[in-house]
Write a protein that binds this DNA or RNA. Structure first.
Lengths: 242, 242
DNA sequence: GAGTGGTCTAGACCACTGC
DNA sequence: CAGTGGTCTAGACCACTCG
């Protein structure tokens, strides 16, 4: 037989793509329930099992959350269960506490070479830069410098950041309709510069974790570039390998 | 109706446990094929679909590897595809190269408080300590100090380590029958001590990544505790968040 | 009790591998 | 061509949630 399908894609993946598309278009908002498996099966003219397999994959990727007896929901960074999804910092004693976010600065700039390459925008395109402190139990532990494409985050200001309760990605979701899906982190050890040392109340030159993160939304589109400097005297960066 | 099953466990999980048990008992060795889904279904008196779901989970946990048309195989650290499974260090230029492992020392000792707690062995029980260097393109990048329970790794010597080609976990698998399944890593930034600085050819006091890893075999049994010091001038520690 | 996701089955057919 | 994993279906029943 002739191989007719060099790009063969099983039905459930096509269904997945359709659901993805609906998600991306905002047909269902974060936190809301999507239609039942039976309804989706009817809509796409496939069996429940095929829809199920599509949803299985999306649940595994943290795009959807299943709740037996209730329905399937669009994952949201405003859901308490997602708060620690992207923050891998754990206190030495192992007892997790929610950090307090202290916005320091927020200003406009034009994208330089690096920012334009990473965020895939034109050099010189508007960007927004945010600096903030993360405190655990009142103690400063992380300094973040966050680069955002200005077009996507129009109107973001220090006031917006200060008013908001909850996680930054929760704000991005509700205020700007941007859903953070996945991220890559590059971790290095660096020496604290003077300014950072003061903010984190450590000695100048003391070793800090440098965590560079690029965060992506649907379609692997980068929408955030940030560099965090972590003081790892009282905390560690946890990674589970399997 | 009365809730008869507070500890309800679906059939496919029971099957998974049985397959796990067979794996653990060594019924099939790393790299070997396990019986076909149909055979297992017959053996356990369930449908193929149920076996499939059990295997699906185990494949997702990297315990088994499926190969369409060929069969399902026991995952092995001697498989080239698994070489980088636990090493998250990437060169700045992004081009992966296999590191060269240089064993430096290997000696016997008795477990102190920390080692006994982490490896869950009696204080004073025999342990083996290995020090080694990891080189990329001839340059030293990582110093590892590895603590192993003596009982499990009887006969391990510097010569064994030097003779062996391939990954350390591959050696553990073939020589000692120990399969590394998952690991937790605690990452911090520290200053290079004099001895480490010399080995890594960096200045004393310069910042290094400290990567503490506890590695587990079947049944979440810890079988390795190691501390690595990584020079992150030419490499970074990569973590993918989702 | 109605509606949701979760499990289990049986059978058909497809895609890939190797003899 | 036989044997393997991979897909898809249809239907039955279970576990959970909520009104």
């Amino acid at each position: 037989m002739v191989q007719e399908s060099p790009t063969f894609s099983p039905l459930y993946r096509q269904i997945k793509a359709l659901i993805m598309q609906a998600l991306e278009s905002g047909e269902w908002r974060p936190g809301e329930a999507i239609p039942s498996e039976m309804d989706l099966a009817a809509r796409f003219n496939v069996s429940q099992g095929t829809v199920r397999k599509a949803i299985d994959e999306m649940a595994a990727e943290n795009l959807l959350v299943r709740k037996q007896g209730k329905g399937t929901f669009v994952a949201s960074h405003n859901d308490p269960r997602s708060f620690f999804r992207f923050l891998r910092l754990v206190p030495n004693d192992g007892i997790l506490v929610s950090p307090e976010s202290v916005p320091l600065e927020c200003w406009r700039a034009k994208a330089g070479q690096e920012a334009s390459r990473i965020l895939r925008i034109e050099p010189g395109a508007p960007i927004i830069i945010v600096r903030r402190l993360l405190k655990f139990k009142g103690r400063p532990v992380v300094v973040d410098e966050i680069y955002l494409p200005g077009e996507t985050f129009q109107g973001l200001s220090l006031e917006t950041l200060q008013e908001h309760q909850g996680s930054l990605y929760g704000l991005f979701e509700t205020r700007f309709g941007v859903r953070m899906i996945r991220a890559d982190e590059h971790v290095r050890a660096v020496a604290a510069d003077r300014r950072t040392a003061e903010l984190l109340q450590v000695a100048e030159g003391s070793p800090l974790l440098s965590v560079e993160r690029v965060t992506y939304t649907y379609g692997d589109k980068p929408v955030e570039w940030r560099r965090g400097l972590y003081s790892t005297a009282e905390h560690y960066y946890l990674n589970e390998l399997s």
